[in-house]
Each structure stands twice: as structure tokens, then as C-alpha cells.
Design a protein around this nucleic acid. Structure first.
Length: 403
DNA sequence: TCTGGGGTCCTTTTCCTT
DNA sequence: TCTGAAGGAAAAGGACCC
């Protein structure tokens, strides 16, 4: 009998593990990987190619105590977590808790490299794989030879072993009848574990868990559930679906009910097209739209150039150009503007983004500025479309001088 | 000294057209 | 010509995830 068997594979402490492959001398020390400002890169003597990375003495690594500026922790090693520092914490706050921690810059190129490696190992064994970011995937075991043995445990073990032998990295795998349960299962046995969940495990294994463990229930939904006395998934499952729909809306209500009963028929999707691309940056200090006009204009232009370059490199064009502002008080405003034709051209994006920016409130000081291009189309598909000339109005829409 | 960056998806509001 | 309903697209905001 073929049962639907879906696996969720999650790399264990991915960023930190990759860094420790490069810098084994840091093993066991508190290490924090930081929300990257260039200063950390300058501090770390990566430019010195005369010696191997593993020969850099621990004493030469930058420390959290020496860091000044904005940013958050992306990952902290277990040794660092002992001091109470963890993901999403401000670096300045973390420096108080654990000043002696080594601070490494986020190195996405490196993580992407290892990401591609472990994913290609997986698809060699099981071709139906869905990407969920750098360190996570779903895999459809159902039709893979051996995918049914021990309800998926044998194949999960094989994949784990193949990844470890090639990269030295460990991962945790959950195998279940669907993505929802597989995602939960992969957390049951961390690190380097395998967890098998069957339909009949719902009540004993899943219902006692907090609602927050359902992928898709975040802090807001969890607080609302709690306000109605719903703490566990079992308590959620016990609620009348009509009441859930009435309280949370049509879509969310029905979804909450299904999720609590372990029902999910989403397929494993092997490829998908991007919907938008964006670039954003947090300033070293909050900027004033008037007084810091020149600086803002320069950053604005750079963001447009970056997102245009991203589009061109990946072969996409878009027609909805938007901006995002985060004010000093952390309020967010977005504005966007749809063009009549598709573009990946930096000046065109800059003009359209300028139109959007003109419509946003600029009284409060700004903490972050972002530029986004949406309604994407593959560049070669867009060539087939008729084009309309831009209007003079669009052309004259410069808010900030171009440097 | 709080709180990054890059995404997706959903809901609500607004605006335009019929 | 005015008004209102209905529906779709675009815009804005928010929740959530890695």
C-alpha cells in the first residue's frame, strides 16, 4: 500500500554550523552571527590570504564588546545562548549579556553554497523537493523507491547520512502524511534526529502542543487564540468550525480547523516564480527627509540600482514599483505605483519609486528605506508584450536630486 | 542601545468602470 | 444626468516565515 509520505528537512543551526566548518577553532566558544554591517567585515582579517582560516588565532576575532552600531543577531551558538542571547536580539543588548562572544558577519554567499550542496544531494535521491529558504526543504517520499520503508525512516536516514558525508552538516527530518505535520515532526527530535508521524499520532503527539507550533500561527494569532482560552492544538481542534470561521474569518477559520485536525493537502511544489524583488537598508542613524535630503537621495538611487541589477541578473522585469519607509518609531508606510510597461531599468525604477515616495508622509525621521519591484514577468516573456511610452509626468517625477 | 533583510500571502480599503 | 450597486484592479497594511 502506498501512503502519502512527506518529509520536512531542517538543517541544524545552519549558519553557525557552516561558520564552524570554516573556523573550527571557535568550537565550544560563544559565537554570535550578526545582522551584518560592513564594520565587522573590516575587523575580521579575511583579506589576509597568507594563512588558512583555521589558523587565525581566536584572539584575532572581533568581539561583541567592540561592536558599535545597529543590527540584530541572526544566529547564536549554544555556548552563546547560555548567556541569554538569541536570534533577533539587538547586538548592543547582546553585548551587555555576553561581551566576550565572538561576532561574525553574516556570509550569505557561503550559506548559499552549502545550501545548494545539500539540496543537490537530496534531489539526487528524491527528485520531488520544494525549497523553503536556505536551510529547509520539503521532500515527497511517496513514490521514491524505498520511501515507504519504515514509513519513511529508512530514506530519511539515507539522506541524513549522504548530507553529513558530503558536507559535515547535520539535519533533522520529520516524515508525516503531509507538509503541515512533517514540519512539526522535524522539530520533535533535534538535532540530527528523525521523527515519524502517522495519522493516528495526531491525538497523542500533536494535540498536546501549543498552537504556536503550527506553521502559520504567529504571535498575533496565538494571542487571539489565547484570549479565547485556546492554548493547545487539541483545544483548537475541539472548537466548532462555524465559531472559528465567525471569529477568524472565512479562510483563516477553516484553515485553523483543518490544521488542528492535521489536514493539509498542499502539494510539494518543485519550482516557483518569484513575485517580487526588493532591496532595503537601515541607516546608521535616523535621517530627516529635508536635512538629510542628499544622503537619502543617494541611498534611494543605490537601492534602485541594486534591485534593477538583481532583476537583470535573474532575468526578470516588473511593473509595480514600490517604496517602503520605516520611521524612527518603527511605524511602516508603503506606497506603490504601477507602470504601463515592464522594466528592469534603474532610472525607470528610480522615477516610478520617486512618484511613490512623493505620496508618503515624510515628517517623521526615517530609519529604513526600501525599494520593491513586483508583478514580475520573465524578461523573455515580456518582450512579447506591446509597450506603451512613458508619460512626461512620469519623467518629471524626481523627488531627490540624483546625487 | 532595543528591534535586519528578503520574501509570500491575505485582508481591507480605495478607486475606477460598468 | 444623477445615483447606487457590483465587481475588479490597484494600493495599503499586516501577519508570518526563514
Amino acid at each position: 500500500m502506498t501512503l502519502r509520505r512527506i518529509a520536512h528537512l531542517d538543517m541544524d543551526a545552519f549558519y553557525a554550523s557552516v561558520e564552524l566548518l570554516r573556523y573550527p577553532q571557535l568550537k565550544g566558544l560563544p559565537v554570535v552571527i550578526g545582522g551584518g554591517r560592513r564594520k565587522i567585515d573590516e575587523d575580521l582579517m579575511l583579506g589576509d590570504t597568507s594563512r588558512a582560516l583555521h589558523d587565525i588565532p581566536v584572539s584575532e576575532f572581533p568581539l561583541l564588546r567592540d561592536y558599535t552600531g545597529r543590527g540584530v543577531i541572526t544566529t547564536a551558538t549554544y555556548a552563546a545562548r547560555q548567556f541569554g542571547v538569541g536570534s533577533a536580539m539587538g547586538l548592543m543588548k547582546a553585548a551587555k549579556l555576553c561581551p566576550q562572544a565572538v561576532l561574525l558577519p553574516v556570509d550569505f554567499a557561503q550559506y548559499r553554497h552549502y545550501s545548494q550542496r545539500f539540496k543537490s544531494i537530496i534531489t539526487d535521491i528524491a527528485p520531488l523537493m520544494e525549497n523553503r529558504g536556505v536551510d529547509e526543504v520539503y521532500i515527497d517520499f511517496t513514490e521514491v523507491p524505498g520511501g515507504q520503508r519504515e514509513a519513511g525512516r529508512v530514506l530519511a536516514r539515507l539522506i541524513q547520512k549522504a548530507i553529513f558525508e558530503d558536507t559535515g552538516l547535520t539535519c533533522s527530518v520529520g516524515v508525516a502524511p503531509n507538509k503541515l505535520l512533517a514540519k512539526m515532526a522535524s522539530e520533535f527530535n533535534k538535532p540530527n534526529g528523525i521523527s515519524i508521524v502517522m495519522e493516528e499520532d495526531l491525538q497523542p503527539k500533536v494535540w498536546p502542543l501549543a498552537c504556536r507550533k503550527i506553521n502559520g500561527i504567529g504571535p498575533k494569532a496565538d494571542a487571539k487564540l489565547k484570549s479565547h482560552g485556546i492554548e493547545t492544538i487539541g483545544q483548537l481542534a475541539a472548537r466548532n468550525p462555524a465559531w472559528l470561521v465567525q471569529t477568524f474569518g472565512n479562510k483563516t477559520g477553516a484553515w485553523l480547523h483543518d490544521a488542528a485536525w492535521g489536514r493539509d493537502n498542499r502539494p510539494v511544489v518543485t519550482e516557483s516564480e518569484p513575485v517580487s524583488m526588493s532591496r532595503e537598508t537601515t541607516f546608521d542613524r535616523d535621517l530627516d527627509a529635508v536635512r538629510d535630503r542628499a544622503e537619502l537621495g543617494a541611498v534611494f538611487t543605490r537601492l534602485c540600482e541594486q534591485v534593477a541589477a538583481d532583476l537583470q541578473r535573474k532575468g526578470y522585469v516588473g511593473r509595480t514599483i514600490g517604496i517602503k519607509l520605516r520611521y524612527a518609531d518603527f511605524q511602516i508606510a508603503t506606497r506603490d505605483h504601477s507602470l504601463t510597461s515592464y522594466t528592469a531599468d534603474a532610472p525607470a525604477i528610480r522615477r516610478a519609486a520617486g512618484l511613490s515616495l512623493k505620496r508618503a508622509p515624510l515628517q517623521k525621521r526615517l530609519r529604513l528605506l526600501g525599494v520593491r519591484v513586483g508583478s514580475l514577468l520573465r524578461a523573455e516573456d515580456a518582450k512579447l508584450l506591446p509597450t506603451e511610452p512613458e508619460t512626461a509626468h512620469d519623467r518629471n517625477a524626481l523627488l531627490f536630486p540624483d546625487d
